[in-house]
Design a protein around this nucleic acid. Structure first.
Lengths: 226, 226
DNA sequence: CCTGCGAAAATGTGATCACATTCTTTGAAC
DNA sequence: GTTCAAAGAATGTGATCACATTTTCGCAGG
């Protein structure tokens, strides 16, 4: 029995910690490609930008580094990891293994409301592709995938997949900025059809195809030697 | 051109950072099951134990938490995550997806020297199983798997798999302590045979069987409701 | 022109202090 | 004995300072 439970309002939880806000801001910057891969990240620079002291920045960077979003080199300086060929391939493989599984696990729990939302997001993607809006495309594409996966609570798989997307972020932006979004083909119709049909294998294969499609297009573009 | 490169000795790199040492110590404690799942972890407690200030502990905990080895609850207090049924299943699925892939990628690069080492480790496992030495079994089992995977440099997959093992650590210990190692069957012979035969699919299946075998045995044991 | 060296600025790390929040204990009222 | 509230201890968080290491810049020598 909790003696608390004072007011009926939402839990009066502690105000969000600053290191969490810094973490979110950093993650956002990486996903949106606002941090150039070559240039390094400095604690004091981030602290000044976000108007906090070094402390929250240190903890946020430690956390993002553990997720692979940043890399602390032996100099102890922090960089956006270089995208080498093998790293790229490994990231793609990991995505192609985990995401179909996450989708399949979510499938039985996707109700009509969520499917409707997924369809709406797919429409947004179509618009973004036609207008060439890279920012909107990336946001909507992320929402499409994770609205599917999140139908089932997956406290293990989803964070793992999020970490993979985080690692692609900076380069997706660079690639799209170079080749544009015109080449992208919308492979999501297959996924939507499979969801509507409750087709487990079909959904797995659709997600896998979507990943391979987008990644193959990138593969030919920027990649550094090992 | 680096102007450095002064002496031929190993790089005179900075002395290891304390937060890295604390991180290693923490990870070790979790894998070895020295931290009871129920009890919490306090910054000052760890700092006193390891004889450092709060700073390195804070960064180490942030890092381990990002890897899923610890959990910062909304109270901002740190615990070993509870092993629920769904969490357990997700962890097993992730292992069964990533580890066969890592093994298959390593297969072409496993030379005779490494295979010899793998065989030696398997012998250690047999001994540990016969003598019921839980500690030795866990160490050797870890070495067996990662000696295979590490044949190919996998800067993405291997850390992900390590993070999964880290999450099992505390409970493996608890389970083995309860049911003993007598039940364990050594499924590694299949893997060794597949490596010797350069049998990609055979190795994948052997690794997968090994995972399922060990995990299924655990599944019936301790697990909390969601 | 550029090569190398020394000074100066910048950076990451660790320690200590202060403070708000949370947990634990204590003690009185019923 | 049980319940509840207040006092006390413990904990996580953030800021500031100090220091060793690294990087960057300027200037001399070739």
């Amino acid at each position: 029995m909790k003696s608390k439970e004072s007011n009926g309002k939402s839990t009066p939880l502690s105000p969000p910690a600053k290191h969490d806000q810094v973490y979110e801001a950093l993650r956002e910057s990486l996903v949106r490609g606002r941090i150039v891969p070559g240039r390094g990240v400095t604690l004091r620079g981030l602290a000044k930008t976000l108007d906090v002291s070094l402390m929250p920045v240190r903890e946020a960077i430690r956390r993002i580094s553990a997720e692979g979003g940043l890399e602390v080199r032996s100099n102890r300086r922090v960089f956006v990891p270089d995208m080498t060929t093998t790293r790229f391939e490994e990231l793609v493989v990991a995505r192609s293994l985990l995401e179909p599984e996450a989708a399949a696990r979510a499938l039985p729990l996707i109700d009509s409301a969520r499917l409707k939302r997924i369809r709406a997001i797919d429409d947004e993607i179509d618009v973004a592709l036609r207008t060439g809006d890279v920012e909107a495309y990336m946001t909507a594409n992320h929402a499409f995938h994770f609205t599917i996966y999140a139908a089932a609570p997956s406290p293990v798989l989803i964070p793992m997949i999020e970490a993979l997307w985080l690692r692609f972020g900076p380069y997706m932006r660079a690639v799209y900025g170079r080749v544009g979004t015109g080449i992208l083909v919308d492979q999501h119709e297959r996924a939507i059809a499979a969801i509507a049909a409750r087709d487990d294998l079909g959904l797995r294969e659709a997600i896998r195809a979507d990943i391979m499609d987008g990644m193959n297009m990138i593969g030919s573009s920027l990649l550094e030697p090992d």
